[in-house]
């Protein structure tokens, strides 16, 4: 038997602890991405071109380059400027920035989906731009894009193994450590894959549910 169930059970508690790290990173990274993405989307719609254009280009740049290199960049470059980020800070900032660029596209679609008339009505009521966004536009723009946003929660989740390169012991890093200590890679890495599969399938089912409920409304 190539897959040793007894060994798999033996490492399960350690793996579960590492899985918690993975989930933590996912949730914090996602919260960052949601906030950064919204800021990016709004900045790109700014009427001041000296804000909109550079932000747009930066978003393009971040999205076209590998997350792995961005993690290295934030982790290693910071100290040179006296800004020493911990592995967690650097890793989560990279995740949030990288996925913020994707999420900003989703926001953009949602904002574009709000009819022009809503802007005009808000202007007719003499609402400030901030009020217009907060009370009129965003409440209408967000609900339809919940499934789209959910997809990137799954996306971030699947990218968390990259944090292992800056010594964050999430699930895959733990699996590899166990492998190098025991010379058994089959069980830890297969378990890791199974964990990712189950979690993403469950999350995808939730996203589909959200989609259906949206359609009913």
């Amino acid at each position: 038997m190539l897959f040793d169930w007894a060994f798999a059970f033996e490492i399960l508690p350690v793996m579960a602890k590492a899985a918690l790290v993975t989930l933590q990173a996912t949730i914090v990274g996602y919260a960052l991405a949601l906030a950064i993405g919204l800021a990016m989307a709004l900045a790109r719609r700014s009427r001041r071109r000296w804000i909109a254009l550079p932000v747009g280009e930066t978003v393009e740049f971040i999205r076209s380059t590998p997350l792995l290199v961005q993690i290295y960049f934030l982790y290693f470059v910071g100290p040179q400027f006296g800004l020493a980020l911990s592995a967690w800070q650097a890793g989560l900032a990279a995740l949030g920035l990288h996925y913020g660029t994707y999420v900003s596209e989703v926001y953009r679609a949602g904002l574009d989906g709000v009819p022009r008339g809503q802007w005009e009505a808000a202007a007719a009521l003499n609402l400030s731009r901030y009020r217009t966004y907060r009370d009129i536009i965003l409440p209408q723009a967000i609900p339809p894009i919940v499934p789209g946003l959910g997809n990137y929660l799954i996306g971030i989740f699947k990218e968390t193994p990259l944090l292992s390169v800056i010594a964050i012991i999430e699930l895959l890093a733990r699996a590899k450590l166990i492998g190098s200590e025991t010379f058994r890679y089959v069980e830890p890495i297969t378990l890791t894959g199974a964990f990712f599969l189950v979690m993403s399938l469950a999350a995808a089912a939730l996203v589909r549910l959200a989609e259906r409920r949206l359609r009913i409304r």
């Binding site: 699947k158 890679y185 089959v186 297969t190 894959g193 990712f196 995808a204």
Partner: peptide, 17 residues
């Protein structure tokens, strides 16, 4: 459903077993 890096590690570290 599984992560790309996990897949690469699986091919690289597990298949030899």
């Amino acid at each position: 459903g599984t992560s790309l890096l996990v897949q690469l590690f699986w091919w690289f570290f597990v298949l030899p077993h």
